[in-house]
Amino acid sequence: MLQVFAKTLPFAALLGAAVYLFTLTLHFDFPRAPDRLGPDVWPQAILVLLILTCAAGICRTLLADRRAKSGPGEGSTARAGEAGAAEPEVPSRYGLVAGGVLLFLAYPVALEHLGFLAATFGLMMLFMLIGQWRNIPGVIAVSAIGTLALFYIFRGVVYVSLPLGRGLFHDWTVWIASLLGMR
């Protein structure tokens, strides 16, 4: 039952979102002309298709579940055999994913306040630690050298305007840039 719920969940969530978005298209603000298609037609067509497809996805999952309950057929036996012969599955570690997502979310904020050097050094270091690399001197060295190399390449060579940060971090980033021969 839980498996069926997990499989129908994305379709149900998308179906709900599609219905909500469709209601929004009814209120698009534009000068309506009687014989002209407006900017609402295209998204409405997409959303109707999305609603129908999601409904089909839910029906498919429920039907597959009913078929499975009514008894495994030859096909499912064969698939079970194949699955058994496959290599052992590596267990999922959602804690690592959550840690990674939090880091990604924190990076834009850190970038604005701490500047490219400090934010990138922190992100790289923490990401490698989350990624199970336990060689601490290696992590620090790769983060430091990597950050400086990326800073030099993108600011000094490719001329991307990387954020400098605020206050002390700004001064520090500018100082490092001048040490690397960049203005």
Binding site: T120, M128, G138, L150
Partner: peptide, 10 residues
């Protein structure tokens, strides 16, 4: 893979 992925992220 961890350092390679860190660079990919950057």
């Amino acid at each position: 893979e961890a350092p390679v992925s860190a660079f990919v992220v950057m």
